[in-house]
Structures are given as structure tokens and as C-alpha cells.
Design a protein around this nucleic acid. Structure first.
Lengths: 152, 152
DNA sequence: CAACATAAATTACTTTTAGTAAGTACATGC
DNA sequence: GCATGTACTTACTAAAAGTAATTTATGTTG
């Protein structure tokens, strides 16, 4: 933490400190250091989104998830599941058998989060043709500009 | 691409190749290599979410965004804006004046995307107290388990 | 007239994160 | 006694993000 030099800044910092807890109790994603940023990070992480959508309304084993979410490594799957578990979105139930058997499912909070990210996921899948078209249009524009710059 | 050894796998690969375009025309986020994965990456990237929400319904300059989104570096802001522009979500208008003036706003497609991510953003901010509680509960559980393991 | 400020980047460099491949534990079937 | 299946973990490498200084062109200040 920064040391205060003048009395005035000290007072200002104290006001900040007083509102700090209150400001972060309800999340504020535009604020640096707000814990909600970590939650956003976990939920919207590359594999977090897909895990949440995959587990919506169903229980799956580790290997099921690995098969369903094409391209995820065991390391990242385990890591992301642990992050989501820490946030209370994912429930992990381990049966002490050999070979191991571990079930993953969503908590009530996790199902809510999953609905939100499913919104994005479905929107992207739906609009993918439009997006592809838009990407090509932007790329074409850029080429034209590049050609115009080359003439000078 | 893998070389086919038997005729049978060749046929299977041809089927895959035939359906490849069709399978990816509409996005499939669970498929590896589907272009929709890149779009998801851009939209749900650490700063992508915040940029989309910040630009919802309004035009902002580069420096406005930098001020609004606390903690973003100039490099990452520029980089993420470029990615979102490539996907056709963000419109960039540069006025050739000194000092430079560049306006950023959302396209129709971008506004739709922003609505989706705003859903997550608002949900997190709303539920942050609950999430904080859940996290503490999970942390407490883990400590208990750790203590139980230590007894053995 | 030289120094400085300004907005929007970009570049070089460091640190953090993600990806890859191999290893671990233990019972069961061949 | 060696391969198999499951859910991880670990060591290493590649990629991405963070940090700080530099760029560009011009108008204002001293």
C-alpha cells in the first residue's frame, strides 16, 4: 500500500478504505482488484465456458468431459474444474474405487452461471455465419486500405 | 493432415472432410479447430468482456476506455480492440488530427454480443455476495478435509 | 526557438499462463 | 508379468500477458 504524505491524502485514502469493503461487496467489474474480476476470469476462461455448458443439467465424469470438450488437455481440465469448484460452481464427488471414479456436476449457483455463458455460446453458434461474413468484410476493407497506402 | 493407410479410413476421412465445412458453417464450440472457438476467445477474453460492456450503447475514445476499464494496459486495450474489430464487433473511426482522435463504438453484431456478455457481467456483480459466501464455504470444507487427512 | 504536452499506438523486455508429454497409483483381465 | 483404465500430477516448452520506454506530428509554453 502507498504511504500517505499529506494529511489531506490520508483523509481521502481513509474514505476510500471505508468504502472499499462496501464497494466490493457487490461486485464492480470495472474496478481493478475487485474479486469479481477473478470470478469473471474463471467463468469466461477458455475452458471454463465449455465446462459450464457441458455440465448444464447433467453429471459427467472427468473422462466424459475430456471426450466432450475436444482439444482440452487433462491438465487444463483439472485446473479449470478446480477453479470452478473453488468458486462454488462445480460439485465434485469422488468414489474411492479402483480405477478412480469422480463425478462432476453444477451447484445451483453454477447452473445460473452456466445459463449466462450458454447465452453467449448459443449466440456465437447461431450467428457464426454472420460473424464469418463480417470478418471477411473487415479483412477486405483492410486490404483496400493497405493498397491505398501502398500507392503513396 | 494425416495420411490414410487403409481404404476404410480414407472413406471415413472423406466423409469428415465433406461435412467439415457444413459442420463449421454453424459454429460448434465443442469441436476443436472450429473457428467459433476464436470468436469465443475474443469475446470472453479478460478485456474483451469489459470493452464490450463499456461500449454498449455509446461511443468512447481510446483514452476513455483506458480510464473506464481500470487496470488495462495500453497494449492490451489496443490488442483486444483490434481483435474485436477483426470479428466485426467494434467499429473504429480515426480522425487525422494532432493529437490523434479515435472513436470506438459497437456494430449491430457487437451490440448483440455485448448484451450477451453484459448478462454474465451483471449476474456476477449481482451475485457477488453469494459467490463470496460460497467460496468461503468451499475453502472451509477443504480445510476440514486437510485436517482429517493429517490425522491419519 | 527549443522544450514540452497530447492521444494513440507500438516495441523490447520480463513474468505469468497455457500447452505437451510423460509419470503415478492400484486393481483387473490376458 | 504386462497391458489396461481412470483421474490426476509434474517437468518442460511455447505462447500470451504485463511493464515500461519510445514513436509520431503538431500546437502551446517559456
Amino acid at each position: 500500500m502507498k504511504k500517505n504524505i499529506s494529511t489531506q491524502t490520508a483523509v481521502l485514502d481513509d474514505q476510500d478504505a471505508a468504502s472499499f469493503t462496501e464497494r466490493f461487496r457487490r461486485g464492480d467489474l470495472f474496478s481493478d482488484q475487485c474479486p469479481s474480476r477473478d470470478v469473471l476470469k474463471h467463468i469466461t476462461s477458455r475452458w471454463g465456458v465449455l465446462i459450464l455448458v457441458a455440465l448444464q443439467g447433467q453429471t459427467l465424469r472427468f473422462s466424459d468431459l475430456r471426450r466432450k470438450i475436444k482439444g482440452v488437455s487433462e491438465k487444463m481440465l483439472a485446473q479449470t474444474l478446480q477453479a470452478l469448484e473453488s468458486d462454488g460452481f462445480v460439485k465434485r464427488i469422488s468414489y474411492p474405487v479402483v480405477p478412480p471414479h469422480v463425478d462432476y456436476s453444477l451447484s445451483a449457483l453454477g447452473e445460473e452461471a452456466a445459463q449466462q455463458v450458454a447465452g453467449i455460446a448459443n449466440w456465437i453458434e447461431d450467428k457464426m455465419p454472420e460473424i464469418t461474413q463480417a470478418r471477411q468484410a473487415v479483412a477486405a476493407e483492410r486490404e483496400q486500405e493497405a493498397a491505398a497506402r501502398a500507392e503513396n
